[in-house]
Computed example of a mutant assay.
Amino acid sequence: MTEQQQNRKPDEQQHKEDKILDPKTVTKVSGKYIVGTYKIWDKKAKRNVTYNFRFPGYEKATGFLELVRSGDLRALYGALMKGDEDLDLPKVIQNPDIDGIQKLDWEYWEGHSKMLPVMNAAAQFLVEQLD
């Protein structure tokens, strides 16, 4: 082991991987669900993070489109992360597994970067399924 490797923090040694700077959503059918994965470099967490998307079905997906049309990004992003009981919308972005399941909510983004690209990828994932 080199001196540089010895001086590296344990977390940095475990998660040494190429930074994904040009992420793409990969979509597939898993059982009865259409799912997508989106992996992106998180500069705050100093590692790539994989976000999993689950298509909620055509009727529910149109509910998300109504939020897009309303222009209320806070409501849209909140529903993508946590769902929205009042609108009967399930969450699309599943809780990421970063050394254990992380609850995805507004507080999560205090310790992570790339919120806008993740939200845009989730919204685009929905649109692509409806196209």
Rank of each mutant, 00 (worst) to 15 (best):
R54N: 13
P23Y: 02
K43Y: 12
G36M: 08
L126S: 06
I93P: 00
M1A: 13
V92W: 09
N48R: 00
V29R: 05
L116C: 08
F55G: 03
F53T: 01
E3N: 15
Q129M: 12
Q102R: 11
S30W: 08
Q94W: 08
A61P: 03
D72F: 02
Y58K: 11
I93C: 04
D88A: 13
Y108K: 02
E85F: 06
I20E: 11
D105M: 09
R69V: 10
I40K: 02
K60F: 06
D11R: 05
L130I: 14
P96R: 06
A121R: 02
L89S: 06
K103E: 14
G36V: 06
L130V: 12
Q5E: 13
D84G: 07
T25F: 10
V26D: 09
P23Q: 01
D99L: 08
D86S: 12
Q102N: 11
L130M: 14
Q102G: 04
M1I: 11
A122P: 01
F55M: 12
G83L: 15
Q6V: 13
L73F: 04
A79I: 06
G57W: 02
L87D: 10
W109N: 11
V29N: 09
I101S: 05
Y51V: 05
T37C: 04
D72L: 07
K114Q: 14
Q14D: 10
W106E: 11
D22V: 08
Y77V: 00
Q6L: 15
K82Q: 14
K39A: 13
D105T: 05
K32P: 00
K24A: 15
L80A: 03
Q129W: 11
D86G: 10
A123F: 09
N7W: 09
R69I: 09
Y38R: 04
F53N: 02
T25D: 05
N95D: 15
D22K: 01
A121E: 07
R74L: 13
I101E: 14
V35N: 02
Q102L: 12
M81C: 09
L87H: 10
E128P: 00
Q129N: 15
V26E: 08
W41P: 00
P117V: 10
I98D: 15
W106S: 09
Y77Q: 01
A122I: 04
E17T: 01
Q6P: 07
H15A: 08
S113V: 07
A75H: 06
M119G: 10
E85L: 04
R54C: 15
N95W: 10
D11C: 08
Y108L: 09
D22A: 12
Q4K: 12
G71E: 11
N95R: 02
K24P: 03
D131C: 09
K9Q: 09
K82E: 15
G57T: 01
D11Y: 13
E66W: 04
F55K: 00
M1H: 06
D105A: 07
Q5L: 15
Y38A: 11
S70D: 15
K16V: 13
E107T: 13
L67D: 03
G36W: 05
E3D: 14
